[in-house]
Design a binder for these strands. Structure first.
Length: 396
RNA sequence: GGAGGGGUGGGUGAGUGGUUAAUACCAACAGACUGUAAAUCUGUCGCCUGGAAAGGCUACGUAGGUUCGAAUCCUACCCCCUCCA
């Protein structure tokens, strides 16, 4: 198992590391970010787009694909890779996150989860065993166990029982899992209690999985809490296994994750905010619909090498969004995904050449402080306008 | 020339005596989004002061009138639309 994950570089001031994760469908240089393709598509992008942007891993969703189109359809194609024409590595999530996001439609018991379909209301039972069988049919390179993902705000006893159940389910998944060309990871839970996080990591770590995920974070807790939980979770996980932080993908969070030893990330944020008109730039997140971009002939991010930034002005993208033209959603998605992928490339490079800490610092300085600066500048301008108005009144 | 219908906030368009600064939708202006029920959701949206609560001012074609009170009723005028000649 260990030869599947080889650490090739480390930061000596933090826990950041660079590695290569091998799968049947290709090698993944880490730290790596996987765009989310729940319904067998990274929304608005083609597989060719993904390749050209440097994406080397994506994550699809068992629950969504099981409901639609249904596993029978995908099996006719011999699995997910062929169905969606993506020949690179794929992770499938089990549906555990839907226990959280579709909570009103879910009933959880020791046996498993009963989902009421968000599409047609029909009832479906998914146990840890079924989750694995479904994922074996989908044929992803890395598969996830069913887990119980609770909201950030919940008491310790709830967090404990969900964690313990997640452990029992992890074992059931492991016993069911047969396809040896797929890696089944485990998922650390434990809510917002460091002791539970540590306990979860120790317990799962002793069960010898080929990789470990950290779940239940970035669900509304503060950044500080997230980092604390992350540290607690990572402290007792086997060091030479891949560490996958689930659901995290804001640039600043990725950097904090890498610093603490995370190798893999996935997140819907970059693609979703793109479709909602927010673009990530070296100087922070921007709302492309803002009137200030109407006549902006510069590109979104002068440092970016994506197709959008090589080809179109900010004013054009602004226009597409104001008109709700489909191309706008696609171009902003291309930019945001490439922005994150390029960030991952820079992170890896900085770890390899020993400059991770300074890279992180300078990235965050520019990404965060400037956002604040812009806000202050705006405020100053508003005050100035108001004062000028009052002066005008007085002169009359 | 005759008959009828109508003019409401940036737009479409409700409202036919007080609870109306005026429903709703759109536009405009901001904000949110983290293992995607999301090309979604939230807020603001006459002007002025205020962080807010609130207060002041101006407003339903124009000008008068009736009334304690008018977008709403009456009169005149202006403009638009439909039909008939």
């Amino acid at each position: 198992m260990t030869e599947q994950f080889q650490i090739v570089g480390q930061c000596y001031q933090t826990n950041a590391r660079a590695a290569v994760l091998s799968t049947k469908h290709g090698n993944i240089p880490t730290p790596s970010f996987m765009p989310v393709a729940s319904q067998a598509t990274v929304k608005a992008l083609t597989p060719e787009d993904l390749w050209s942007m440097g994406v080397n891993l994506i994550i699809a969703n068992t629950y969504h694909l099981y409901l639609r189109p249904g596993l029978e359809v995908i099996q006719v194609f011999g699995g997910l890779h062929s169905f969606m024409s993506w020949d690179g590595p794929i992770v499938t999530d089990s549906g555990g996150y839907q226990v959280f996001s579709l909570a009103p439609l879910c009933k959880v018991s020791e046996e498993g989860v009963t989902f009421r379909s968000h599409i047609d209301g029909s009832s479906h039972f998914i146990s840890p065993e079924i989750a694995i069988q479904l994922q074996e049919k989908l044929g992803a390179d890395i598969i996830m166990p069913l887990d119980e993902c609770l909201p950030a705000v919940c008491n310790k006893s709830m967090a404990r029982s969900a964690m313990e159940r997640t452990h029992r389910w992890a074992l059931r998944c492991k016993e069911t899992h047969q396809k040896k060309d797929q890696s089944l990871y485990a998922i650390v839970q434990g809510g917002m209690c460091p002791e539970l996080r540590k306990e979860s990591a120790r317990c799962l770590g002793s069960m010898d999985f080929p990789g470990y995920a950290i779940g239940g974070l970035s669900l509304g807790e503060s950044k500080d809490t997230m980092c604390e939980m992350l540290e607690a979770s990572l402290e007792y996980l086997p060091e030479y296994s891949p560490h996958y932080l689930m659901g995290v993908g804001a640039p600043e969070d990725i950097l904090e994750g890498v610093s603490r030893g995370v190798d893999l990330f996935d997140c819907a944020l970059p693609t979703r905010v793109a479709r909602n008109g927010a673009v990530l730039t070296s100087y922070g997140r921007r709302s492309i619909r803002n009137a200030s971009f109407k006549n902006d002939d510069s590109v979104i991010d002068a440092d970016c090498d994506c197709y959008t930034c090589r080809t179109f002005s900010t004013a054009y993208l602004h226009h597409l969004f104001k008109c709700e033209e489909l191309l706008g959603y696609r171009l902003s998605t291309i930019h945001n995904v490439r922005f994150i992928i390029r960030l991952m490339e820079q992170i890896r490079e900085s770890i390899m050449n020993g400059s991770f800490v300074s890279f992180k610092q300078s990235f965050l300085d520019q990404y965060q402080t400037t956002n604040e600066t812009v806000r202050l500048r705006e405020k100053a301008r508003r005050m100035h306008r108001r004062d000028a108005g009052q002066a005008g009144e007085g002169n009359r």
